[in-house]
Design a protein around this nucleic acid. Structure first.
Lengths: 117, 117
DNA sequence: CAAAACGTGTCATAGTTCGTACACAGTACA
DNA sequence: TGTACTGTGTACGAACTATGACACGTTTTG
């Protein structure tokens, strides 16, 4: 039912088609949770896991942790910390970019990467 | 002891010098919490309040809610929601801006505001 | 066909979050 | 001088978060 659970199941199933090490149980063991818990998470029977567990799951499935966290409605601690150091500045920037098209944001990312300040 | 508590007390005391309606009790009543709770919050005896309460306190004291939230180590729900809609993009942007100087970020804010994309 | 692996149901719970309720002693002030 | 307001200590608790333990029936595999 949940966005997060669906994505986790789908990703794992896809990997499993070619590699039987991606059973629910084995993935659960590798990321350090009980199989029954991962099962409930995948089916949205419980809320998405903590940040740490979500990140371990994303990595295990070869996905972007930030994207998995986002599906759980969360923003990673390290991003929050960056924002919290200059809250007014980042708040304004982010709200400003709310409705900006993707390519505009990408443009800025490139501009900044090329360090033209 | 806490950054958050100190700022709250300091701001309130300053307002109080010229307006006795800014006693701890009266502020507590206006933002809808018990005086004893606000007292503990101000002295850092308990963790900073929830987002909603923090925002009410900030507004009551004429401060920027984002800044007060930041002192509590939090990022407001609405900003998180914006990020969660395009996690990869925003994650990269924010990490990229981590060490950028303030004026560079301000420059981008202005660029975006003037809508040159 | 037996053993291992599979996914899931039920129940329990330790820890954190976010406060309330009330009493008390000190201070202001009319 | 008494009453009304001040800040604070103690005690308590409801709700939520994030999981563990274990048993069960089913499927796969050697």
């Amino acid at each position: 039912m949940t966005r997060f659970g669906e994505a986790a199941t789908a990703t794992r199933q896809r990997l499993r088609e070619t590699d039987r090490r991606y059973s629910l149980r084995q993935v659960a063991r590798r990321i350090g949770v009980e199989p029954s818990y991962l099962s409930k998470v995948e089916r949205g029977q419980v809320a998405p896991p903590s940040e740490a567990t979500t990140v371990r799951l994303a990595r295990e499935l070869g996905q972007d942790p930030d994207v998995f966290l986002a599906m759980a409605g969360k923003v990673s601690r390290d991003l929050q910390d960056i924002i919290c150091k200059r809250p007014a500045l980042f708040a304004e920037l982010i709200r400003q970019l709310k409705d900006a098209p993707d390519h505009a944001i990408l443009h800025i990312v490139r501009e900044v990467r090329d360090g033209d300040w």
